[in-house]
Amino acid sequence: MQYEVIIAGFGGQGVMLIGQLLANAAMLQGSKTVWMPSYGPEMRGGTANCTVVVSDEDIGSPVVPRPGAAIVMNLPSMDKFEPLVVPGGLLVVNASLVARKAERTDLDVVYVECNRLAEEQVKSPRSANMIALGAYIGKTGAATPEIVKYAMAKKMVGKERFLEANKAALDLGIRLAQGEAG
């Protein structure tokens, strides 16, 4: 089984971070994994995206032109990556910043108001990305929640306050994706 996801948004939305968390979690659960950033000359404010592949077997191409899933955190990312997801694939949309619906009808689309929920329910505006990651793993099972939280804890030593918020955000995302909340 191989999972591929492109995670995209503005610089500063933490898209690289949740990609690394997913890759770390995949490694910790014994899967093969690759995290691949796209990079440009700009340091700030541009669009950022990364690709994560999780697989039972050795991973060939780290570049995935047609991924099985995309997490789009803003409108430019939606415009760019919606057309690329393979038919039958998954699209996680941050409905707080993406005002439109998906144009494709052959995708499993999950709309999550990441920013609003992070602020109102998790009381941690910066945890919007974790809600999106939760939605992705809740839908796909690419990594278990426990192992993502473990990877989070390893990465966030000394930032325990944010850690609890991020765990809560992840759980919320999982519940939303599985249709248990909203």
């Binding site: 690394q20 490694m27 093969k32 994994t33 690759v34 995290w35 691949m36 950033p37 780290p62």
Partner: peptide
Amino acid sequence: GLIGQMMEP
């Protein structure tokens, strides 16, 4: 550049 930038275990 891909080897330089990508992350793997």
